[in-house]
Design a protein around this nucleic acid. Sequence first.
DNA 1: AAAAATCTTGAACGATTGTTCAACTGGAAT
DNA 2: ATTCCAGTTGAACAATCGTTCAAGATTTTT
Lengths: 243, 243
Amino acid sequence: MMGAIIRMNASDDTGTPAQAPARARILDAAEVVFARHGYDAATTRRIAETAEVPVGLVNYHFGSKLGLYRAIFELRAPTVMDQRAAGLAMARSEPDPDRRIELVIKALILPMFGLRASPSGLRFGQIMSRELSDPSSDERGIFAEFFDPVARMMIGAIGECYPDWSVAEVHWAYQAMLGAMMIVMTDAGRIARLSGGVVAPEDHEIAARHIVAILAAGLRHRDRSLTKDTPAMGGKPNETGDI
Amino acid sequence: MMGAIIRMNASDDTGTPAQAPARARILDAAEVVFARHGYDAATTRRIAETAEVPVGLVNYHFGSKLGLYRAIFELRAPTVMDQRAAGLAMARSEPDPDRRIELVIKALILPMFGLRASPSGLRFGQIMSRELSDPSSDERGIFAEFFDPVARMMIGAIGECYPDWSVAEVHWAYQAMLGAMMIVMTDAGRIARLSGGVVAPEDHEIAARHIVAILAAGLRHRDRSLTKDTPAMGGKPNETGDI
DNA sequence: AAAAATCTTGAACGATTGTTCAACTGGAAT
DNA sequence: ATTCCAGTTGAACAATCGTTCAAGATTTTT
């Protein structure tokens, strides 16, 4: 069943954004399928069908399924990373710690939420979210390669805001930020279902406003009496010696 | 499809991990494999191999792969849900809102973090986390069945703490809590990698202390000037009319 | 003891997986 | 005009998927 592939010749140009070259169409289709099914459950055939190209082309252009997956991150990750780096640079010019931490939080969150404005950006967010919660992602090494560097920057920036915080306090703060952000990227319909349709996760501006407000207050006013027993970080990232 | 019948015989013994009956061994192995690979990528054969039983037994005892998956939730979910309900009941006896919200947060988080004390509980946490970030989980309907009820209780409890909050403010607060919790369940090694081994996610008591402190402060002190434009919730859950 | 119900086993089924491959296309370089 | 080669195509590969099944083993009921 479903063996024939309909070829779009030069005469037909409706639907897809222009008659894009095959490579780009595959990349686009891959985002859709990987976002929907995750890495393992996504199939090259479904990607090829979605892109309306023969199966063989996928491996010709990207070598392997993993190569295609990596290509998505190579395409999308730099934009987010650059925006975060720029946001952190801006935050550094704010002397007041309590004001600066809000800028740091925004530097993490706004680039990701802004992604959700475009359909393809939304899909990339879902892919990232899935990759983060996939234990076998270590084998692919994508997070370590694409996102660890900026994560260390973020962690360093938090530590600079509050130099008396312990390493653990800084890292758990980052985890809380990451988690709150990720669940927004993840959630497709649950918050709408639970709220009876009142809360719409699609409106990323409103979502960002809520999440940033909560996280900023959380970091500013956290009760440290039970957590400050570990040695202080001293505003220096990675003084533990690791890369 | 779905022809096998699940039989519960009188030989209902107390669980033994060593030479347990086949059904229990399959269930145990399924937790391991589903946690590691996710629903789609997990294979019945690998589960059977891990349980050291022939492949056919899996479908005999659980009917199908989905039946086996559901059986895991039927086994583990009630414990977590009961503990949360008990925690919420306890929280209701605290009159001070700022103190009560901390108990509400703990009612959500502590049962899950406590799960991590045992290996099988840790695996169940990973399975839950993956299910939450899987768009195709809607087709399985597991979250709607097992976790939506207690989610509505949680959301209601937040609304009762701060009756002047809007529906959106309450729901986004819940999302932030859920996200921060989920990333702890998810994270296998990244926080250890990023912190150079200083921060250990295995110590769920310390993790809970940090996350609860941040979330409690976040909800208590959030700046509402940009988010309180939507109508208030009035302390009643689901007044929107949905189930 | 015989009969019935339950559990276990491994082979087998058709469908689907990622990848390979020889044949083919069309346009640029020689 | 010929060579050349990146691009394209669909068939084919071995491996693996979830599930089924007839047969044997074990236990329970009669």
